[in-house]
């Protein structure tokens, strides 16, 4: 889900900034857009920072079930 919403959020943010910069918005709408924009900024930054650094290895067990374990690449 997050994979689509990061891009969506970023696009929405870009659109909001464009709209805000065009300057035709009434104040109430501008404030609302600003709030939404800030939310998007927080959201995007959170996604950028929250992704946990992880390198795993996907293998199948003897019984055929999938096993994901840390991958040692050093």
């Amino acid at each position: 889900m997050a994979k689509t919403t990061f891009e969506t959020a970023l696009k929405q943010l870009e659109i909001i900034v464009k709209e805000m910069e065009s300057g035709d918005l009434p104040l109430e709408q501008a404030l609302k857009k600003y709030e939404t924009g800030i939310e998007k900024v927080r959201y995007c930054m959170q996604i950028l920072d929250s992704t946990e650094k992880r390198i795993t290895q996907l293998t199948r067990d003897l019984d055929g079930s999938l096993v994901e374990a840390p991958f040692d690449h050093e």
């Binding site: 920072d49 992704t51 946990e52 650094k53 992880r54 390198i55 795993t56 290895q57 996907l58 293998t59 994901e68 991958f71 690449h73």
Partner: peptide
Amino acid sequence: RFPNCCLQIVP
């Protein structure tokens, strides 16, 4: 490129 990215290696 993305220091905290998440990779899954399938050997």
